[in-house]
Design a protein around this nucleic acid. Sequence first.
DNA 1: CGCGCGATTGAGTAATTTCAAATCTAGTGG
DNA 2: CCACTAGATTTGAAATTACTCAATCGCGCG
Lengths: 191, 191
Amino acid sequence: MDEALQKLKNHIQETVKLSESEWDFIAPHFSFKRLKKHQFLVQEGIDVPNEFWIVNGLVRSYFMEENGKEHILQFAMENYWVSDFNAYQNHEISTLNIDCLEDSTFLVMSFEDREMMCERVPALANFFRIKSTKGFIALQKRVMGLMKDNAETRYNDLIEKLPGLTQRVPKKYLASYLGVSRETLSRFSND
Amino acid sequence: MDEALQKLKNHIQETVKLSESEWDFIAPHFSFKRLKKHQFLVQEGIDVPNEFWIVNGLVRSYFMEENGKEHILQFAMENYWVSDFNAYQNHEISTLNIDCLEDSTFLVMSFEDREMMCERVPALANFFRIKSTKGFIALQKRVMGLMKDNAETRYNDLIEKLPGLTQRVPKKYLASYLGVSRETLSRFSND
DNA sequence: CGCGCGATTGAGTAATTTCAAATCTAGTGG
DNA sequence: CCACTAGATTTGAAATTACTCAATCGCGCG
């Protein structure tokens, strides 16, 4: 836990400066969570009072169609912030599932604490502002890829952006993230 | 200009509280810009020192493939913030074009001013933090739509989300936004 | 040893694209 | 105000691409 908090402190300070007193104010509002592979961080149909910073491990967030088809929205690992941000921000029930692809550990922050801390610690508001902006930019690139590139190009971009992911997750998950059937992925992924 | 600034003040205050002195500090850092239909706000290959708040009008941001195909990333109108946020945030040259689909007016803010104002006026940092988060959520819904829905469903969702857009822009632009050919759009859009 | 999950391969099908041509429409200049 | 033209839309048909369904293969683990 203490080690995790120290990592988080470093993570935040890569983006903004935090005084010791600011950090001492913030730190107690995080709790620690440990999950095993296949356990859920967020489940469809349930409230989402928290967002999570991944200390260690690997998760996927995905949604299901009525017919049962799964679509992976994101893979997230060490240093990523994850949640169903729509449900979290707007106090709705989740439409996403987030489960662990590996044993994972998290620091947990509630919505109320986040808003309160952002009011009290401007540097933290700036931190999340910049993080959100970068998240927005990353998603925009994803949309551009979906519109411009075929599945094979998107596959190559993915393994370039997250090398090692291929070794950590079954290919069917990569297909689900890329938006193609496993069969199609299988036909052009030659390794 | 003054009228535009007043509108912006209201817009910001829908999300956060701003004192009069805070507003008086912020307001002078915006400039006013007026463009006619077909003129460009942002152009591919050029620096993007500014982001823009749309006072009035309608723009599209789009990117081009090497082969010349255009893909519309966003339609933006009154009250929207637009820019090539990737280029703007990371001081890169633009990969996007943004042009006016109607005569439009804007309030202009530079990157340096934004960062400086967010440091000095925490409420503004919170404003942009929340705006970014909502933008992220909206984009995520777009990605989900692209993965889950066929073009016809995406079309219906679009005209539901932005009614009136159909009357304001040629259908080929809607097709470009949706990620289908105009011919395909034509075959299911019956009005 | 065999079960089960994941990956691959094949064949047929569905959806969308591309190319081409015809039709319609709105804005411009005379 | 009208005629004209460029742009926008529609329609048809062929070609492409990815999907689904089905069968098989491969491998790790109990």
